[in-house]
Design a protein around this nucleic acid. Structure first.
Lengths: 236, 236
DNA sequence: GCCCGTATGTGCGATGGCGTACAGACCAGG
DNA sequence: CCTGGTCTGTACGCCATCGCACATACGGGC
């Protein structure tokens, strides 16, 4: 665990935005769990058994491989939830969900979740809004992935991960990043080297550190800011 | 209008799947409208005034331009609806919606829509499922746009449009296709020429005709089949 | 029947990413 | 302290697409 991290400072933002009464009621349905790095929460086509409200951990949601390997389409941290299909009453997921940052989360069983939704209109409204935002972020990502060069996409990913890790310091090898971004490992090495040479980041054997956040944001595509702004506009 | 087309044969699939009673009730809230080619239904950020259930017309939903021009992320015909954010209780859209195939649709005002949703649980369930499918199709599209070459993507687009136009014959210039697919016009010309040389399609000055559907499907990426299969699995 | 605008075809150098191969660098465990 | 595995750096030819420029082709309107 990184010393600069203090989980007690965080809560899940979706739950925190609820009125106290609803907040308490929802948490009564939840249990507190500690998630381990690289733990697989779901495989494509599987039934959803729990929804997760990350407190100080985060997840990577990856498309199933069809022709090629998968591709990361969402990064979910304490600003979101895992198990969104259940908000629509659907109990399967078509994405692979992996823990990318270890830490605590609230967890609710899929059986209890509809009950919680029924009890708290505020929860319903919040999660509906969240679904809207996420959907639009993914739509945006289609364009981002199409138009933006790897270096900018990598910078964006680093910023998004930094935010969700609540730390400038986190873990990901070039090999792994290549899988998430849908490019060759060598491509990541080149892009990462470029960012490092500009003193925006430092890395070594999977150990990544963001040195210059504003600089990194300048190197990233506008999608980063757009995406955050969209969240704040509808959820903030 | 194309002679091979007969609108009376079609209905909106989402509405058609409802129990008779619900179907009738929903239609009572609707008015029948005839949409014209290139009519703009919404611009990014605008308030939604109507939802549309296409009967024999179809729409193109395009992301807002950020760095680059937009990019088509959805094609909606009689298998779907326009105005999906309202299903989540949100009355703005962040996409540009344009009529790509003229024809009839059912239309309901944004004010009446929540009422209709409340009256018919079957409608609610159907539209929730539809949202789930669409979301996953867009996620898939991130990967498709990333990995597949233009010729395959073009073939896929032609097949999807053919299905939604209910005809092998429809209209789109290379210039326009380039905008939707996020590539140069010249790229579309090259890809389309290749498909034409293989006798899969014929085109001339924006007039496109699919000659060999199975052949075109073989030329398209697997995403086409996957996408259709996903719809059938959850909506069929 | 000519003309002009729209649509399509072609050419050329540049570039970002691909696939593969191999070399160095670092760390943990025997 | 050596060794083997993991991670990172570099090299080379190839390909899809880019950006730009220009050439042809078709067809409706005067």
């Amino acid at each position: 665990m990184h010393p600069e991290k203090n989980s007690a400072l965080f809560d899940n933002r979706l739950l925190a935005s609820l009125p106290d009464e609803d907040h308490r009621q929802v948490l009564m349905h939840c249990e507190s769990v500690e998630l381990a790095l690289d733990e697989v929460i779901s495989e494509p086509g599987e039934q959803i058994r729990h929804v997760y409200f990350p407190v100080d951990c985060f997840f990577s949601l990856v498309t199933p491989p069809i022709d090629h390997a998968g591709l990361e389409v969402r990064l979910v941290g304490s600003e979101g939830m895992v198990g969104t299909p259940l908000v629509l009453g659907i109990d399967v997921t078509l994405l692979r969900t992996v823990v990318r940052g270890a830490g605590p989360a609230w967890r609710m069983t899929a059986e209890r979740f509809p009950e919680a939704l029924g009890q708290s209109p505020a929860l319903r409204i919040t999660l509906n809004r969240y679904l809207f935002v996420v959907t639009n972020q993914v739509e945006q990502m289609v364009a981002c992935t199409r138009f933006h060069v790897l270096e900018a996409r990598l910078a964006r990913w680093l910023l998004m991960t930094r935010d969700r890790a609540h730390s400038d310091h986190f873990h990901a090898t070039h090999e792994f990043l290549a899988l998430l971004l849908g490019v060759r490992r060598v491509g990541v090495t080149k892009a990462a080297t470029a960012l490092q040479k500009r003193n925006l980041i430092h890395y070594s054997r999977g150990d990544i550190r963001v040195l210059d956040r504003p600089g990194l944001q300048a190197a990233a595509c506008a999608c980063y800011g757009e995406s955050e702004a969209m969240y704040e506009r509808f959820m903030g």
